[in-house]
Design a protein around this nucleic acid. Structure first.
Lengths: 250, 250
DNA sequence: GCCATTGTTCGCTTATGCCGAACAAAATTC
DNA sequence: GAATTTTGTTCGGCATAAGCGAACAATGGC
């Protein structure tokens, strides 16, 4: 990362915030002190400051802390600013209805997939929120679709970092993954064959910004049994055609 | 707010973040310095720290700063944690389809409405993202539905603060508003008659947590011409009945 | 090309953030 | 129900680093 003068206090404070995850959304002072390596009292002042501003809330019963709802407003501002999600949504819905599978929009952020929205086929009731979720590049359809079109430097950075294994199907060998990326580039779409979640297959197509670089990707995903070789090709074609008006727009 | 030891550095940093709004999503160092009252160099170190952590991004062309996508992950964690949105969504969809109007879910946060989700009738393509948006209590259906059931202290706090006028229909007189709140409590639903946006009417029903206090509200809203007195009553009844299984659950 | 405005860097000083230990308040144990 | 452990909270002191101000660099407009 870039150097330049930094605020240590702020870095510590954000490190505290980052301790909260979906799996571990409530934390106590002692726990946070252990996780961050800070002193309990330091963590306490940080939490106090955040709490007084609404960014952290303290459960009255357990005394534990959790993220405050005020943080949600930042997402709103970001979404309003870029408009990426809003522009894509009608197309996501089209794709979901046509394929009768769940359709995801993810963007590239910090060499990870950042999910922006999901669209469900008309029949299915939408279930859980996905916006803001993160996933690795190397084992998701969206991720591989984007990874294939990154610069050599970025690609190398991802491939040389440890590739976490999620299922028996996760490709953790950089050489094999590199081969697949070549294939993805020539096909124009990526397939995730239960590499992130067992039983789930996924077809993804990259989206390019007006600078020519990948900025996002759109996928459909569902039970592997519904995703035959033939279906995968059909889905890929459909996504490609549907997204045509959005290519090179952002 | 509570006192206790606070971190001035952190407060300043968050004040910088809060300068970014939906209307003003890109800001320069000088502008931020003016808005916060801090020195340019101080703002710069703050921005630098945020940028290195991914919470702020700098546009390469204009050199201006904007909120970083990494902030979106916090919303994801909050949504996953509470599950409020996910639990309500199927019911929102039901209501939207039955009324053929847009259906909103908002919660009470910091004496404001915090929008969590919107559901659109099947025919209509979903448009803009609403999650994380904020609105005042005194002039929205969702807001008034919740305001009516707050404690006297909280009610007083809202009514005694300046009630911003958005349209000719916005009620800015505390006495009149208080009367209306009494009515809302006896009816069990609130009506927003173009008080926030001209031409838009809205019917909202409060949702109570298992502690007995209001935690959220659900509304349908649409062009005023479609919202006759009769329709308003029908919509209110429908929302009430649909939400029954969710009352006193959270 | 000049001037105005912007973003960035660099010392200096003093405020303040961090630590450590003590205190208070629960939760857990026996 | 008392003792003990674990938790959240408060307080004083010291070294740090946050914030200031001015100077510098890099734009952009006139």
């Amino acid at each position: 990362m870039n150097t330049g003068s930094e605020s240590k206090a702020l870095k510590h404070a954000m490190n505290v915030l980052e301790c909260f995850t979906a799996e571990r959304p409530e934390l106590g002072v002692t726990e946070l002190a252990r996780l961050t390596g800070l002193q309990k009292s330091s963590v306490h002042t940080i939490l106090n400051t955040f709490a007084n501003m609404g960014y952290i809330e303290q459960k009255p019963d357990t005394l534990k802390y959790c993220l405050g709802y005020k943080l949600m407003h930042f997402s709103y501002i970001i979404n309003s600013h870029t408009g990426l999600r809003d522009h894509f949504l009608p197309y996501l819905n089209k794709i979901a209805d046509a394929t009768r599978e769940v359709c995801y929009l993810g963007m590239l952020n910090d060499l990870e997939v950042l999910y922006l929205e999901a669209a469900y086929p008309a029949a299915q009731l939408r279930s859980r929120n996905i916006s803001g979720e993160r996933a690795p590049l190397h084992c998701t359809g969206l991720g591989k679709a984007m990874l294939a079109f990154l610069t050599e430097d970025e690609k190398q950075k991802v491939l040389s970092s440890p590739l976490e294994k999620f299922t028996d199907y996760t490709v953790t060998n950089p050489e094999m993954l590199r081969c697949e990326l070549d294939e993805i580039r020539s096909n124009g779409y990526a397939v995730d064959n239960m590499e992130h979640e067992f039983g789930v297959r996924c077809v993804a197509v990259p989206v390019f910004g007006n600078g020519g670089s990948v900025i996002a990707a759109v996928s459909v995903s569902g039970p592997s049994l519904r995703f035959s070789q033939q279906k995968q090709l059909e889905h890929a074609q459909l996504i490609k055609q549907t997204l045509l008006p959005l290519q090179y727009c952002f």
